[in-house]
Structures are given as C-alpha cells and as structure tokens.
Design a binder for these strands. Structure first.
Length: 639
RNA sequence: GCCGCUGUAGCUCAGUGGUAGAGCGCGUCAUUGGUAAUGACGAGGUCGAGUGUUCAAUUCACUCCAGCGGCACCA
C-alpha cells in the first residue's frame, strides 16, 4: 500500500501501482470525468501514470491553469498528425510549447504555404473529434531508432541517438499516429478542444544552426476555450496598433525607403523627439562627470585591423575606396576613435577615470533579414561612452554606471529592468587570464550593486564580458537597451597607456557603456510604450492652437507666438474647418494639448484648454495657461 | 543570409490578359461653425524594377530590389 496526500492535507492509502484516474474515481465520479492530468510532488504527469510510492498528488482539471500547457502540447501533436495525414512523406522533428501556443518543425517534400492552414486546421478538428487516447509507451532505444529510420523519420532517429544512454525513450500514440515525446499529455485528443489557430509559417534551421538544413515551422496558438483565444487575437490586434512603424507613419515621425534599406529618414516631428532624448542624456551625462567628444565617421581600415574589428566583423562593415586607393571604414563602433582621443597627449593616473562620451552615428551592414523598423537598422546613433580607468577603479565606476542606468530607465517609466551577464564567447581576443579577471570584476559589480541578474553564457563581446539591460515595455515585450562591457584588450591593442604613480607606463582598462543603446531603437520602444501619446516633454507638437471662427485667427496667432516665445512647441490650425473637425483631427494626431479660442476667449484674454483624452476643457487666462504648460513640459530630470 | 508571404494614388485597400477604381487625405469654392467628420466640385497612379511569353502584360513566367512574419546573426 502507498500513502497519497492531497492538497487539502487529507491522505489516503492505495494499492501500489494505482493510476491517477483510479484515484480521481475513488474521490468522486464527477472528478474523474473532469480530471485530465496529475501533479505528483509538484510535477505534471499523465492521468494514467501508475504510482508506486508515497506522493503528494493533485488532480489537474481541464480548466486549471496547468492544463493549458498540456492543451498546447497536444495541439502540436495533433497538428503534426494532421500534416502527415495531408502531406505524406513530410518528416516531423520537434514541436514544443511556447508562450500562448506551440510550434512544430517539419521537413516537407513540397513547401507549405499559409494557404494550407485552413486544410490543416480542418484535419486537426477531425482528429480532435476522433477522440483517440494518448497512450504512453516506453521503447527500447535501438527499437525506437530502427522504427523511426524505417519510417523515414531521420530527424527523430537522430534525436534519439543523441539522447543520453540512460534516458528512458517514451513514445505517445494517438490512434494510428505516434511521436517521440517526453509527455505528459491529456487523456485523449477530444479533451484538447478546438480553441486553436495556426498563425505563422516560418523557416527555422534544424537545431537552430544555420549550417543545417532549413525546416518549415508552423506556429499556432491554443487555449482552453474560444473566449480566451478570441481575447488573445484581440490583444494581438491592439498590439499592432502600437507598432512604431505604423505610428511613425501616422504621426509623420520618420520613413524608410528602398534606396536606404535600414536607414531612417527622420522627419521634423520624429527628429524633435530624437533631439529631446539627446538633450536629456547630455544633461544626465554632464552631471555624471562625462566629457563629450566627436570622432570621425570614417577611418582607415588599418585602424580597424589593429582593433580586431576587421577580423571579426569585416564582412559587416561599410567600406569606401578613396581615389588614392585607400580603404576607409564607416565606424561600426566609437571605441577606437575614443582611444585615439585618449592617446592624444600623455595621460597620468590623476586623469583617471576619464569618461569620454559621444552621440556617434555608427554603420553596420546588418543581414537583410534582421532589419526591423527602428529596432534593427544599419545606421544608428549610440549614446556611447568609454570610461578609461585603473583596474582598481573598475568596480566603483561600474556601480556608478549601473546606478545612472537605473535612474534613467525609471525616469522613462521602465520599472521592470532585467540584467543579463554575458561571459566569454568562443571567438575572442585576449588571454584566458585576462578574461578570468574581467569576468570576476563584472560579477563583483553585480554583487556590490545587489541587483538580480541572469547568466547569458558565451554571449560576451569578443573583447570582454558584458552586462545587458533588458527593458520590459507596456505590453510585456523585452528590449535590450543598455550595455556595460569590460575591456582589458582594446587599450593594449591600440597602444593606450597612462603614467602611474610609480612613474611607469600602465594600460588603462576601458569600460564601454551605452544606456539608451541605439537612440533609434529607444525611440521605437518609446513610441510603442506610449502608443504615440508621448509625455508632454517629449511630444513633437505640444500644443495646437485652434481658432473656432476666423475672426479669432489673429488672437490665435498672437497666442501661438506667446507659446513659442515661452519655448513651447506650438502649432496653429487656421484651416477653414469646424472646431469639431479640428478637435477630432488633432486628437487622432495625438497632440497632447489644444488651445481652443473663439470670440469669447479673444474678448476675455483667455484660452480653453483641452487635454488629449479628456472630454472637458478648462478655461484660463493666457498667462496662467502658458506658465502651467512651461511647468508641465519639463523633462523628468528638470523637475 | 535562409524559408514563406507581400508590393496598385500620400494612407488603407478593391480589381482586370485589351494601358485602372473606392474611402480617407490633398486642392478649389461655398459655409463662420463652441470641443472627435459641413457640403459641392477637382487634381492625383510608368500598377516596385528588369527580362521573357503573347497581336497585346498591372494581370502569366523568370530574375532582381524592398517590405512583412520567422530562423540565423547582432561589436
């Protein structure tokens, strides 16, 4: 007999080997009907799992949160079966659960297209209707390999071959079809339901390696019920409305065109926003003791060879041939330039730490498939800086950077910041000894700052380990922005040194850091974060003056001039349109404040203030209104 | 770069083997209207680029370019 404990604290004795269904049935018949899985000592298992030892058991019902994962996993299997029934000869590979759904990678004889989706979905519904039981079987390793090889499933056979020798090989059968799988699953395909939808068709390399063949991946979403599926699809539509590419067009912020793929044409409104970010960061950096410089956009290839960039990234650099046959590279980074500035004139240890900042525009030939609006471009502006310091100063300087970074994100409303620590990559410069030292130094920073972090193994820069700051936006998406990178290599490679207290030459350590990261990307993130409804200090147009009748035009123009004189970004709408129309249009344009003026205001020297999203307006004297706006448009660091 | 899809007016999109259409926007005129659409008229397109098939290509085929969704990449 074994002792089973339930979540409510009660315990019962059962025969060893009892399965979940029997346990559920022993409690009540209705429970056994609703039960779809078990949680044994906190681990999800099939309802049919036989228990041989004492355990804490929880019966999982179909409506429980844990069941959704099973539904998604099952749906992946059902899709794979549907695909193989419809397209014989298609090989299956892997099909995991992901957020909101699942995907499955196939190697088809003929490529699928999204036009096949309705057919596949129909077949999936058929399979659900068949209500085949999911049956777990444990197979001998060699039998399994032979089976999959005999059935033309080379990928599956490869997967089994690569499993550790002592691992149990389990297979799940559903009707005529089966798949290598760890499980667990619901009791039968009928329990899965039909709240699923195939969403995307994509290419994906076998085992994520671009040297391997490319498979076809079908993504789908699945939920416990139709209502949740609909809610999810609605959420996607809402997210699409915040897409920075769409808002950029609607608000006339920027555009892209064929002749400059991956490079932004900033329009006046977008550039206004961009410049606000730079001014803000400039103030913050100056306060933190940085000096600002400007280094050449193009430098000779030899410099990039010396820095090591050419060897690692030469294929991704824009180069240009001069008439006298020299090769210049558009800078993909600012660091070599800053080292040249550091080297100019002898530096003493008393000059350190020296913090050199630049809003440098860098160019990188990113692969065409990587380009994505403002988020991934081929030329972008970094709020880049390099802190040249002694080894002893590293920890303190990095802690200061971390503090500054967090302050800035907070001021932009990002409270949820993740830090990733990336250690040495396979391809790198510098000795292991130096890497040991620099990784330890960065970890010390994390410890000293007392922040949480996660390891990003092997993802460091080729010259040093790094910290990456990942922001989570208003709709839960993650974006990598800031980065701090320790560099014990570049100063030496480029011959930078300082004179120490001992009168000898020493190599400085370099800390690379960017906080916005790419200004272009950060702008994109802000657009999506605010859905274009920027806080007043960032809004490209802060006020639109809208006269109601043309007799109030002169008053409106005078008002606009007063606003401009007060440093407010103010436009006036003198078109021959009704006030309803003007309000509607500027609301759509997401202008935060409208100053509505008619004859009443003109006579009384007042203005009717209408804030975006508010139904009611407020009447104030012109002086009062402008004074209030001047306060309201201050940047967070100026308040 | 790789896989799939897309490219028609400023924007959103319809359409056809016989050189194109809507709504919004834009312009003109009338209207002077008090907080999310006043009306009438009008202008606007080498149908992404090139090659081929055809009497005829925006439509069919191929190549290229760009974009979209992923994968890979991201100093």
């Amino acid at each position: 007999m074994i002792n089973i404990t339930f979540p409510d604290g009660n315990a019962r004795e059962y025969e060893a080997g009892v399965d979940g269904l029997a346990i559920a049935l022993s409690i009540s018949k209705s429970l056994s009907k609703k039960a779809v899985a078990l949680k044994v000592d906190g681990k999800l298992c099939d309802l049919s799992k036989a228990l041989d030892d004492d355990a804490a058991v929880e019966i999982v019902l179909r409506d429980d949160e844990e069941a959704v994962e099973l539904i998604r996993h099952d749906t992946a299997h059902i899709m794979a079966q549907a695909v193989q029934e419809l397209f014989p000869g298609t090989q299956v590979t892997i099909g995991p659960v992901i957020e909101h759904g699942f995907y499955y990678d196939f190697d088809p004889k003929q490529p699928f297209s999204t036009e096949d989706f309705p057919k596949i979905e129909k077949k999936m519904r058929e399979i659900v209707k068949r209500n085949d039981k999911f049956v777990r079987e444990v197979w001998d390793r060699d039998v399994a390999i032979k089976y999959f090889k005999d059935h033309g499933e080379a990928y599956k056979a490869e997967l089994i071959e690569d499993l550790p020798g002592d691992e149990e090989i389990s297979v799940y059968r559903q009707g005529e079809w089966l798949d290598l799988c760890l499980g667990p699953h619901l009791p039968s395909t009928g329990k899965v339901g039909t709240a699923f939808k195939l969403t995307k068709l994509a290419g994906a390399y076998w085992r994520g390696d671009h040297n391997n063949p490319m498979l076809q991946r079908i993504y789908g979403v699945a939920f416990a019920d139709e209502k949740s599926l609909k809610a999810h699809l609605f959420m996607l539509e809402e997210a699409e409305k915040r897409d920075h590419r769409r808002i950029g067009r609607e608000m006339d912020l920027f555009h892209f065109q064929e002749e400059a793929p991956g490079s932004v044409f900033w329009h006046a409104k977008g550039w206004t926003l961009f410049l606000q970010l730079i001014s803000y960061m400039r103030r913050r950096q100056m306060d933190a003791g940085y000096i600002e410089v400007n280094s050449p956009d193009m430098m000779e290839k030899s410099l990039w060879e010396a820095s090591g960039h050419w060897e690692k990234f030469g294929d991704n650099m824009f180069t240009t041939q001069t008439p006298d046959d020299k090769t210049f590279c558009c800078k993909p980074m600012n660091c070599p330039g800053h080292v040249q500035i550091f080297k100019h004139g002898l530096k003493s240890y008393r000059d350190l730490p020296l913090k050199i900042a630049e809003f440098g525009k860098v160019h990188r030939y990113e692969p065409s498939g990587a380009l994505h609006g403002l988020m991934r471009v081929r030329s972008f502006t970094q709020d880049d800086a390099h802190v040249f310091c002694t080894p002893e100063q590293i920890t303190e300087e990095c802690i200061k950077i971390n503090t500054l970074m967090m302050t800035i994100y907070k001021e932009f409303g990002f409270e949820d910041v993740k830090i990733k620590f990336s250690d040495r990559p396979e391809v790198r410069v510098g000795s292991d000894e130096i890497w040991d030292k620099s990784e330890a130094a960065l970890k010390a920073v994390l410890d000293a700052a007392g922040v949480e972090w996660e390891l990003n193994s092997g993802e460091g820069a080729f010259y040093g380990p790094k910290l990456e700051y990942v922001l989570r936006d208003a709709i839960g998406r993650d974006w990598q922005c800031g980065t701090t990178q320790l560099d014990f290599n570049l100063p030496g490679r480029l011959g930078a040194f300082y004179i120490g207290a001992d009168g000898e030459k020493h190599e400085p350590v370099m800390v690379h850091r960017a906080m916005f990261g790419s200004l272009e990307r950060f702008t994109g993130i802000l657009i999506e974060q605010h859905a274009g409804r920027f806080p007043l200090w960032l809004a490209p147009t802060q006020i639109v003056v809208a006269p109601i009748v043309s007799d109030a035009d002169d008053y409106g123009v005078a008002l606009q001039e007063k606003c401009l004189a007060a440093g407010l970004r103010c436009e006036i709408d003198l078109r021959n349109e009704k006030i309803n129309y003007k309000v509607r249009e500027h609301s759509h344009a997401k202008v935060p404040v409208m100053f509505v003026v008619g004859m009443r205001e003109a006579e009384e020297g007042t203005v009717s203030i209408r804030r975006l999203g508010q139904k009611h307006s407020k009447v104030m004297s012109v002086e009062e209104a402008i004074a209030q706006m001047v306060i309201d448009t201050q940047a967070p660091d100026q308040v």
